[in-house]
Amino acid sequence: MILAWIHDVVEAVQSCVSGMRTTGRFLVENLRGEGGAMSATREYPEQPAEVVGDRQRGHLVNDADRCIVCHACDTVCPVDCFKMDGERDGDNKMRASRFDIDLSKCIYCGLCVRACPTDSLSMTRTFEMDPQHEGKRFLFRRNSKQVDVRFDAPEMERLHALAAQPREALSAEDRAWLDARIDDRGQHLIGIYGLGFFTPEQKAEADAAREAKKKAKDAAAAAAKAKAAAAAAAAAPKPASVPAPAAGATPAAPAAPPAAPGAPPATKSGPDAASGGSPTP
């Protein structure tokens, strides 16, 4: 019995020591910063975080030059985070005079991006929302009235120009003007400067994505058309009038509606937006 007791005690000591050795190794490794959390943890606000995955839904931004104020996004939005006004420009095209995305409401579901007929809404891959971050490009509500503050195009230009400069370089007047609109301490985020701005890189990225998407769509449409033609040819020449539109409509349905209204502005404002977009930011 005594031997069993001794055996128990020795076992207990051995298992404790082995456990302590494991945790001790963790402790030492961590303190040295090799392996483990100390090296793997990225302390996000201080250190930049990586974008994970291709379909990251970061900021919701609107490329105002392409927007036709069709309210498709507004209709589909589950949380009603859009506020927009439009006006006719010289070419009698609808243009957004105001496009506010209430980012404190937005749930980043991306439905509006799908609904957008002109691909003017898009989601960036960066997700930096920290008002303390250097790229402060966000608008905050200081009081409830300010949600309804309307920014027209020149004001947006000014806001963006001022926000890009270091604060110390601004004149007192500019600073006061800016302070009335941006709250660094961030009570209530209402949008990325209303009309939506891209950084040049984001702009390029969005344009490239749009191009790729359009190419894919065209390819899909061409393939569908070829398939439909082949099917029609293969079926029979006699009931040609009835199945041909049906066969053409079913596979091409997702591609057709955006192609019809989207084609003229896409082709027309594509270079237009690129030339208009680059000087703005």
Binding site: T23, F26, L27, N30, L31, G36, A37, M38, A40, T41, E43
Partner: peptide, 8 residues
């Protein structure tokens, strides 16, 4: 505790 549990 953090170091042992590989946290910061």
């Amino acid at each position: 505790a953090a170091a042992i549990q590989r946290r910061v």
